[in-house]
Write a protein that binds this DNA or RNA. Structure first.
Lengths: 317, 317
DNA sequence: AATATTAATAGTCTTAATCTATTAAAAGTG
DNA sequence: CACTTTTAATAGATTAAGACTATTAATATT
């Protein structure tokens, strides 16, 4: 009883014989002996229930079903090779999907440059980008929804992180504002001002930093508007609604009607870090040798990304 | 040393485990035992050089390459099934290509009806039709260029044939021709007429028949024009160039200005036969038992066509 | 008629796929 | 914390399948 099913071997053998139309030569080509080939082809025909070859002692020909089968099989074998190549490229981190979170400020500083470099090196890796605020990124990273985050420390979750940038906040003023002409600006000068600020949950740490600075200067800031994207904040500043703290890199996006001033004393600092979940979710550190492969299997894509960020930072120093 | 290569079995096993994420259940589903599955998957990973699964003693997960591999493999297995189904349908004569030759007159009688019936029953068989005159069909059938011919016997080649129709030729006359009013028409009445005839090589037998008839009636026909398609001949008759012998079924294509008259005495007969090359090209009749399968492998499509023609003829009696 | 070519057959050997039984590790439970 | 349950890996034996060599039967070709 022939229990076994059709295997790729059978198909490879069939192709060889369909192309040579000669059992002896086909067998030689395949590196097997002729009786084996005869047997295997017969087995294939039995499994299919279809006669593929018309053979006499002298001549071999494809039957009509065989002629129809051949291109199908060729396509199949070709796709098998493609699939194997694909999975091997994926294993090298040249293929796949990387889910990345980022905050608004990250988008105006390092993110574009890093992403561009990564795409240049790994053009077939799909980068799926999601704008999340820092706390949301933390949970998404822990759940595995994101694999890498560009966010603002400190964070307390058990995640790996690496600070990649730290920039001071500056004050954005409408161009006709009286403080524009003051040679040096202090926090105390802002006591009576109307503030445009982001909502607390979007960046609780920075929010606290700003609040503490004001409190130390002896006042509680009057918040007239809470909005999220920094360009929107700048827009409101231009409209004369109030003043705002924005990250220094926002200066690059110059907007008519808005001027930026640094604070002379202590200033809020916006730190940017990349954060990811440690590969050793399980007790992988109990296994001594296979550690590297475990990390690799977890995500080479991530490793490659981190490596690239490292290189990028070194080239900046 | 792992000499063997990747087989469909490995892929089937991988799919099962990728879907269950459980060695035990996947093995059960596959009808094998769990250690076998573990071993085979490990072997697949070795052959690929890629870790597909991340496994602890407790949990099984797909690695990123594994996730990418899965849909490829599913597609591959699906196409394998499709290819198998295709070749099996081809073996039943439901799929394939049949090359058929026909003469002009066949096109105006039985051919359309038979083709339509065949298409209805075997919609996926591609009928490739070629208009050839009788002698050309003979050589094309012998060389294998055509598998079936609709032509006009007799033929002397060693081909199988079956007469499917025999129709008398009628005389096509311009409507203002004096012979139109004669109650019964004889060959002798045509002695002085101008004839429009097909060239001899197109239908040597019929040509000879007509010539003999005229000779017996004591004259040699005056041929004013040799043209091929019968509708063109009718057109020339309508133009008053001469008279013509056409097959009776041409009456169906009524053309203003042309009238048809039968000959009262002996009349040329146009026989139509289907002709094909015998399946026993080799000495297949020396083998007693496997004869049917040999015929089948040669062309079931042809067999099916012949069977249908048989049915069609019986329904006509 | 003789020779060469070719696919099939017979019989043996070896590999590898599979099985059963067991182990090691991890998670849940009283 | 011990105890049970669950799960994948390991070990060893068995069997099936693939592959090899040698031979045969049939058919062209000379």
């Amino acid at each position: 009883m022939a229990t076994s099913s059709i295997e790729l071997r059978h198909l490879r053998y069939f192709v060889a014989i369909a192309q040579t139309l000669h059992f002896g030569r086909a067998a030689e080509q395949l590196g097997i002996t002729q009786p084996v080939l005869s047997d295997q082809i017969r087995r294939l025909e039995t499994l299919l229930g279809v006669q593929l070859l018309y053979r006499t002692k002298r001549v071999v020909q494809l039957t009509e079903p065989g002629r129809i089968f051949l291109p199908e099989v060729l396509r199949l074998l070709h796709q098998t090779e493609t699939a194997i190549a694909t999975v091997q490229r994926a294993a090298q981190g040249k293929l796949g999907q990387l889910k990345i979170g980022y905050t608004g400020p990250a988008l105006y500083t390092v993110l574009p440059e890093i992403l561009r470099q990564f795409r240049d090196r790994y053009p077939e890796v799909e980068l799926s980008l999601h704008e999340y605020c820092t706390p949301d990124q933390e949970t998404a990273l822990l759940s595995g929804e994101l694999q890498l985050g560009f966010l603002h420390p400190p964070i307390d979750s058990p995640l790996q992180q690496r600070e990649i940038r730290c920039e001071p906040m500056v004050v954005a003023l409408p161009e006709n504002h009286p403080l524009v002409n003051k040679p040096s600006l202090s926090i105390k000068d802002l006591a009576q001002e109307s503030f445009i600020l982001f909502p607390e949950p979007v960046g609780p740490n920075l929010y606290r930093q700003i609040m503490n600075l004001c409190t130390e200067a002896g006042f509680s800031p009057k918040i007239v508007q809470e909005v999220t994207p920094q360009p929107t904040m700048i827009g409101l500043v231009a409209a004369g609604i109030g003043i705002a703290f924005v990250s220094e890199s926002l200066k690059n996006i110059s907007r008519p009607g808005v001027l930026y001033r640094s604070l002379q004393e202590a200033t809020p600092l916006l730190k940017l870090a990349i954060v990811w979940k440690s590969a050793s979710t399980q007790a992988s550190d109990t296994l001594p040798a296979s550690n590297s492969t475990l990390t690799a299997s977890s995500s080479i894509l991530l490793d490659n990304f981190l490596k690239l960020v490292d290189e990028w930072m070194q080239s900046r120093c």
